[in-house]
Design a protein around this nucleic acid. Structure first.
Length: 468
RNA sequence: GGCGGAGUGGCCGAGUGGCUUAGGCAAGGGACUGCAAAUCCCUGUACACGGGUUCGAUUCCCGUCUCCGCCUCCA
């Protein structure tokens, strides 16, 4: 079966064919860096990281452009309230986003452009729109530049709305000089004390939507394959992007993919609602890879209503997978990921990124692998472990990938601990041999208290550090 | 007012006009074990409600209820 995705604009699943053979250009709306990321942002990051990894696995050369909105009203407000420069706020939060993406195993984008670094491209785009009669500078001299919604018949096509039914866009607080209340700001003229960049129409700053059009075009070309982002960006952000770019004569995105939102207690998690759950807080409860499993296991378009219980369940499920690979490694040594993933797994991901049925294949392999391990069928164990690593690699969840493993230092430390624990385990085995179970259990309990879990197997005892 | 999504067994979460009706977590039973852990096997008979279409609907259609998102900054 072919690769296909649900396209927001078509409102149906469409077969995916890239613009250029063997290559995929992907634009993601990244963060407005007014605050550190919450798990909703990272859910989006994980969803699209899986998409990116799957495309890469299928042999496409993926160019991923993920922007950073480093200037906007809220950043200015945060800076003001803290008495620092706007760029201190955006730098600090951009680092927090990068840390969170890295921590969750999201591969870095090919390019990560910032809005304020692309003012000339935005000016060029505005000039084109004005020339073509789709935009105008405010007549009041405020420096605002607006997109003329009425001049573009397709406005509303992406979000399936008719202009007449829309409420006015209050994207400039005082509605300075719009011809139509639904017109949106391409550029916001500077008020006293605000950071600004010069343009032919006056000094000001980007009006959010414009930057994505300008940067997507710069890095991916006038037409590109996939544009992704959260469902809450469909309108107005993406509607406005596509309107600007199409009106300027650019083909823009060919497929629109939107991830479902993350809620907590049934309410959308949002910086402005103040119910943000931050990453450092969660990775105290579970390991980052377990959080990734939790965020990635549901279909990317479904809502995830966050709960600690569900998070811990996901961690348990992940540990089952990890447990097999660790035990397999002890028996057959390190197995490299297989070159190919099972057909059923591939079919699941090809079908609009069906991670859930793909994980069913993963768990099936784990179950069979555990049986093979019990039965001592080493070749089968190695075979299944290799396939599992390949599948988990696509999902960014391979516990042996190094991405999730310890550092060189802790690997060395592990050998030291192993030697020490072995001494204790030899004592315990001796006690068991003379049926002194009280002594044997005491040793196990003391190791347990130190965070070392002992398991007896047909091949002798094994130990590992308690997870979590 | 407009646009869109959702309600699945104790929990999470896929999916489908009928077939062995995913998978995980938890629970119960069994195997293994000195015990435990891990693992394997078995078990649960679910699709908000009311109609309709159909030989047959959780799956299609209509209506109702509830919840959520967007239409304003938001992944």
């Amino acid at each position: 079966m072919s690769l296909r995705f649900y396209d927001t604009r078509a409102r149906t699943v469409r077969e995916f064919t890239p613009l250029h053979e063997g290559r995929v250009s992907l634009y993601l709306c990244g963060a407005t860096v007014q605050a550190p990321p919450h798990i909703g942002h990272i859910r989006s990051g994980v969803n699209f990281d899986i998409l990116r990894r799957w495309l890469t696995h299928k042999g496409y050369r993926v160019t991923l452009c993920r922007n950073v909105t480093d200037i906007d009203d809220k950043i200015i407000n945060v800076a003001r309230s803290e008495g620092v420069a706007w760029w201190e706020v955006s730098e600090r939060n951009q680092r927090a986003f990068t840390w969170a993406y890295d921590t969750l195993g999201c591969l870095p984008p090919t390019v990560e452009p910032r809005a304020t670094g692309h003012v000339p491209e935005m000016v060029e785009l505005m000039a084109r729109l004005i020339d073509r009669g789709h935009a105008y500078a405010a007549a009041d001299g405020s420096g605002d530049v607006y997109f003329d919604v009425r001049s573009f018949p397709d406005y509303g096509a992406l979000s399936n709305q008719r202009v007449d039914q829309m409420r006015g866009a209050a994207d400039s607080a005082d509605e300075r000089a719009k011809r139509d209340p639904r017109d949106f700001a391409l550029w916001k003229g500077a008020r006293p004390g605000e950071p600004s960049w010069p343009t032919p129409w006056g000094a000001g700053r980007p009006g959010w939507h414009l930057e994505c059009s300008a940067m997507a075009t710069k890095y991916l070309g006038p037409a590109f394959d996939i544009h992704g982002g959260g469902l809450d960006l469909v309108f107005p952000h993406h509607e406005n992007e596509v309107a600007q770019s199409n009106a300027a004569g650019d083909g823009f995105a060919r497929y629109w993919l939107h991830n479902g939102l993350l809620t907590m207690g049934g309410e959308k998690m949002s910086k402005s609602l103040g119910n943000s759950l931050l990453i450092p807080e969660i990775v105290r409860k579970v390991r980052p890879v377990e959080l990734r499993y939790y965020l990635g296991q549901a279909h990317y378009r479904s809502v995830i209503d966050y709960s600690d219980e569900a998070l811990l369940e996901a961690a348990a499920a992940y540990q089952r997978i990890e447990g097999f690979l660790v035990r397999a490694g002890e028996v057959v040594g390190e197995v490299a990921p297989a070159a190919e993933v099972p057909a059923e797994f591939a079919a699941a991901l090809d079908d609009d990124l069906g991670v859930s049925p793909a994980l069913a294949v993963v768990h099936g392999h784990v179950r069979e692998g555990n049986s093979a391990l019990t039965e001592g069928r080493k070749e089968r164990v190695a075979d299944l472990a290799g396939q599992l690593r390949a599948m988990l690699g696509v999902l960014g969840l391979d516990p042996l990938s190094g991405q999730w493993g310890g550092t060189e230092d802790t690997a060395g430390l592990r050998d030291v601990v192993d030697a020490l624990v072995s001494v204790a385990l030899e004592q315990r085995q001796a006690a068991r041999a003379r049926k002194d179970y009280a002594a044997a259990d005491l040793i196990r309990d003391r190791l347990g208290a130190a965070g070392i879990v002992v398991e007896d197997t047909p091949h002798g005892p094994r130990w590992e550090l308690r997870r979590g």
